[in-house]
Simulated assay, not measured.
Amino acid sequence: MTTGFTVIRDTTPAADIPRGAVVAMGNFDGVHLGHRAVIDAALRMGRAHGKPAFAVTFEPHPRSFFSPNSPQFRLSDETSKLRLLAGTGLDGAVVMTFDKTRAGTSAQDFIHHDLIGRLGVSGIAVGYDFHFGKGRAGSPSLLVSEGPRLGIEVDVQAHVDIEERPVSSSAIRMALAEGQIDEATAMLGGPWFVSGAVIHGEKRGRDLGYPTANIRLDKNCSLKHGIYAVRVGRGTDRFDAVASFGRRPTFDNGAPLLEVFLFDFKGELYGTVLDVAFIGFIRDELKFDSIDALIRQMDDDSTRARARLAAAPDAFPKLGVIG
């Protein structure tokens, strides 16, 4: 068995790839409950046969390759995805570069060259709707039919429903775009989070009594503009906080920015990478007629955020260490 969480890439020497692993295959954007069902199936298979269990995933997201000019709101970038995968108990991940060559690889060639030839897999777990290979010709049914002949165990997981609604990355994106944080959290199996380095801003927050840590999110992030109760991670430290994501209409109506006020914290954070987990939606972004009105609202926002966080004392995504 491997130790730690190993990341295998196209450039990894064959000698460094553990043979006989069980793999869970998917794009795993967000690593939501549907993905975790596939991962859990791979973990069970691996334990039953004494084999390591890996995720097989693709970067960049295939949708970005096929539609480069269409904005894509990713729930988790590559690093965040790997940290989430590392928190599931998997032994590692195989990150395959999705480029013109891989897009043109037939399903049969992918099975024989990538899965068997390079990885030497002994088992495969996939979701019911996972497709692969040129023209998406590869399907769960193809893997099931080919598995016995190739000596590979195949497990196909059905969709996961919450209140009769299928869990999917698209449904989670929609929930976040509508500010439905509880709904997104339920489908993810934990809070949605973002990571980023703290940058210098206009420093207005200091004058208002609310100095903020500012983080620029991906330009395609479609999170609803508004005020949120959040929990912040810095390494193993955790801080309760209130955050604003939006354009600051009271001041400049500029580019979207995440501004986080950490409760009961003193110190500098510039350049520090923070994890910000979204626990609850407080209100829509508003424009205020006066600074005093804004400060009164910020005081109320903080009170509401503290109460929301007190009701969710342990809420934070389970993240593992890569490498």
Rank of each mutant, 00 (worst) to 15 (best):
P62Q: 06
E78Q: 12
I279G: 02
G50C: 04
L119C: 09
T88F: 09
K287F: 09
V230P: 03
A41M: 12
T2C: 14
G233R: 08
I172G: 06
M25S: 01
D301K: 08
V154Q: 12
R231A: 02
A243N: 02
S64E: 06
R296T: 01
V56H: 10
P13E: 11
R44H: 13
S169K: 14
F5K: 01
V198I: 04
D109V: 00
V260F: 11
M1D: 04
G135E: 10
I8V: 08
L217T: 00
L75T: 00
S290H: 04
A14E: 15
V260Y: 15
L269N: 08
L33K: 10
G196F: 05
L176K: 08
G267C: 08
P13F: 12
R19P: 00
F193I: 03
D182Y: 09
G50F: 08
F66A: 11
G89A: 00
S168A: 07
R36Q: 10
I8P: 01
H131I: 04
A312M: 07
Q180I: 01
A307P: 00
R206D: 02
V160E: 13
T2M: 13
S222T: 05
L43H: 06
S139E: 03
D284N: 15
L217P: 01
R238G: 03
I282Y: 15
G280M: 08
S76G: 00
F58S: 02
G267E: 07
G196W: 10
T101C: 13
H113Y: 11
R234G: 06
R283F: 14
P249L: 09
G26E: 07
V23M: 13
D40A: 09
F130S: 03
V156N: 10
L90C: 01
M1Q: 10
S145G: 02
T12F: 12
H35Q: 05
A241N: 08
K219Y: 09
R283E: 05
T212N: 11
E59Q: 09
A213W: 15
E183P: 06
R248W: 04
F265P: 05
V230R: 09
V242A: 15
G46A: 01
I199T: 10
V22W: 13
G189A: 05
T212A: 08
A310N: 05
I215D: 08
I279C: 05
A107H: 12
Y270A: 01
V194A: 09
P191G: 00
L33Y: 11
I152A: 07
E183W: 13
D252M: 12
F132Y: 15
A293G: 03
D237Y: 14
P317M: 01
H112I: 03
I17A: 09
F28G: 01
R296E: 10
A315R: 14
L84E: 01
S168L: 11
R304F: 12
D40Q: 09
F239N: 06
G30M: 06
L208W: 14
V38Q: 10
T88V: 02
H225N: 08
S170Y: 14
L208V: 03
R206A: 02
P313S: 07
M96V: 00
S76E: 07
D264K: 14
F288R: 05
R204A: 06
D300H: 13
R9G: 08
K219M: 07
Q108I: 10
D77E: 03
F28A: 06
D155V: 10
